[in-house]
Simulated assay, not measured.
Amino acid sequence: MYLLELKGSNHALAVAEADAVGELVDEGRGYALVREPDVTRRLAGSHRVSRFLGESGAGVGGSGEGAVGESAGGSVEETIGAAVEAARGLGVSFDGSFAVRARVHGDGPSSAELERRVGGVFAERARVDLDSPDDVVRVVVSEGRVLLGLEVCETEGFEGRAPTEKPFFKPGSMSPALARALSNIAGGYDGATLLDPMCGTGGVLVESALVGGRAVGGDASREMVEGARVNLREFCDGVGELFVGDGRSLPLDDSSVDCAVTDLPYGRASHVEGGSAESVARGVLGELCRVVRDSGRVVAVSDGWLDETARSVGFEVVDRFEDRVHRSLTRRIVVLSVRDA
């Protein structure tokens, strides 16, 4: 089992992404416990991934999978005591040096004090190195709980692929972190074919391809398709299949892709001509219902809820989220699956 330390920008979306890459066991403010995720698949909504060791004195079995124990007390000293008790109960051995890093959500002890006290327990078994340790023990305090993990990896920062840093850029492009989260939630990784029928600058396609997805994208604008091709070449060695075409009439066979993400026209000029934003959404979703395989997921983004439109063309609504962009724009994100016949 793994302990994910979540970013605070959109907790619900981060939890959904964690659940998409593994079996969600538990979650709370700032963290999620997930069974068997692929930790090499970089998550957008998590800061880092650790092997879960235990909680509030719960030990670990030979498999390294911690049993969740009783939650810690409310006072600062009780919380520190619970963390120390948990550390003492763990048969963790280090091949080299170690350091302890703590993260406290809400009221509680200082991170420095937690690190000092928990580090004192492990210092009896290994050498402390605060600058460049071989191993890092993570302590997470949240809502009266103390959880410990052994760090596996940090997730990437995405800064190098910010829309303005890409060779081809247009205003209104989705951030790479959001694009990665939506791609992961759809299932566009590890050989799965992910379609973006209105791909724009190719942000979703790039993020899917970087985690092993087979990226397929189209756009009514030839300029966008060529720009997306440039971006895919820059970040993914050109991996991806692109076409110029209307998202309401896709040149794809029935059930030919595994999943899809679509950022429908809103708050900006549409490159799909003929019809209102509502009719465009209905046409695009209808085509996605046709080309996505049974049980495949579609993640659709708009500035309004698409639940009824999605149901009318054959989808079930699996989940829904909000993502506030700025004062006058909030994205509405719906996760869909093809309704059983």
Score class of each variant (00 low, 15 high):
203 G>Q: 07
202 G>D: 09
9 S>V: 14
329 L>V: 06
298 V>C: 12
82 A>F: 04
319 D>K: 13
114 L>K: 01
269 A>L: 09
169 F>T: 10
120 G>S: 06
190 D>I: 02
118 V>G: 03
335 V>Q: 01
103 R>S: 12
196 D>G: 08
277 A>G: 10
23 E>N: 15
109 P>G: 03
174 M>A: 14
330 T>Y: 06
276 S>I: 01
10 N>P: 05
2 Y>F: 15
177 A>V: 11
134 D>V: 08
128 V>T: 07
275 G>C: 03
243 F>A: 04
91 G>S: 13
263 D>K: 00
80 I>G: 09
194 L>Y: 07
218 G>C: 07
318 V>N: 02
13 L>F: 10
223 E>P: 04
156 E>P: 03
302 S>L: 06
328 S>Q: 10
126 A>I: 01
145 R>I: 09
1 M>P: 13
132 S>E: 12
212 G>K: 08
164 T>F: 09
193 T>I: 12
92 V>S: 04
157 G>A: 13
10 N>K: 10
234 E>W: 10
101 R>N: 04
241 E>Q: 15
95 D>V: 03
128 V>R: 09
79 T>W: 03
227 G>K: 05
262 T>Y: 00
140 V>I: 14
115 E>V: 05
233 R>Q: 15
157 G>K: 03
152 V>I: 08
121 V>T: 00
39 V>N: 01
323 D>N: 14
60 V>K: 11
211 V>R: 14
145 R>H: 11
301 V>R: 05
108 G>N: 02
300 A>E: 09
124 E>L: 10
214 R>E: 14
120 G>M: 04
115 E>I: 05
24 L>I: 13
44 A>N: 07
267 G>C: 07
102 A>G: 02
85 E>Q: 13
125 R>A: 09
70 E>T: 13
264 L>S: 06
143 E>F: 05
